[in-house]
Design a protein around this nucleic acid. Structure first.
Lengths: 146, 146
DNA sequence: CATTGATGCTTGAGATCGTCAAGCAACTCG
DNA sequence: CGAGTTGCTTGACGATCTCAAGCATCAATG
């Protein structure tokens, strides 16, 4: 133990740091979205639309009530960023699809997350690989509470 | 160099993973807060109160308008979790202080973040140290946009 | 001391977010 | 067909958030 032996952080410290970074990234996202006239929630919904997604599925992904999704999609649709399309297999279902403008907008929001990008740029390839591996190990425990 | 060489993730993949974990942790926090009748924002404000904090400072910490803090503190105060105290040095300022019940409540919320805790438990000491070090390197870039 | 300007907090208006209860349409199964 | 379930919307209501306006206090200046 000479040069490279940082003390082991307590779980509380680690938790606090993870929380701080999560918050910082969310603020970064919210600010980028805001520059395009979107709220964080609207941008988050838009970010789910790689393809057609039923309203119900969106409620699950955003962890909120289905009735809430109705309003958010209403506003996005009014601005021409998404469309509601009938589902050919089930007439109850409405699939939400991002328009070209919608895709372009969320692409820009992601690109403009400067704080996050520059933070990640501080790591070299090996560090990113290590970080990715560790975060992947955290994921299972985090998401089975959906 | 033989067994341990996972492919380097793209920056986009890493970004997505960080976002997913941040969201998961936030949901975990919100759920724990909700069990104590608190909204996420109320709990987040409560979490800042290690000591007396002026309203203005809270607005800065929560990255929102000061008028917003007024309402949040109003509701916390109505439930006996915080108090407003006059600042002896500046009569314009009101310092917000957590009551004993307030401290106890936020302590429990933190303790009940099961998904987050069990996720961190999946790492051994060395991994936690490594993760902490990497996340600390990310921090500077993330927060100088406050 | 009086004036001017800045700062801290609150209030009110208005939009969004979020839940719950209720309702309608459509699907499923017996 | 009939009963129960599911998907979506609506309406009511509270919480969050911003902006503009207002009041009290502080700080600086003449």
């Amino acid at each position: 133990m000479t040069a490279t032996a940082p003390r082991t952080p307590t779980k509380a410290q680690l938790l606090e740091l993870v929380a701080a970074l999560g918050t910082a990234q969310w603020q970064d996202f919210a600010a980028a979205a805001s520059r395009h006239g979107l709220t964080s929630v609207q941008a988050k919904l838009l970010a789910q639309l790689k393809g057609p997604v039923p309203m119900r599925k969106l409620a699950t992904l955003l962890v909120c009530d289905a009735s809430n999704v109705t309003g958010i999609v209403d506003r996005l649709e009014a601005r021409g960023l998404v469309r509601r399309e009938p589902d050919p297999a089930d007439r109850r279902v409405k699939n939400v699809v991002a328009t070209d403008e919608g895709h372009e907008t969320i692409r820009r929001v992601r690109a403009e997350m400067q704080a996050t990008h520059s933070a990640l740029d501080a790591l070299d390839e090996e560090e990113r690989t290590t970080l990715y591996g560790l975060l992947e190990r955290l994921r299972p425990g985090m998401e089975h509470r959906g």
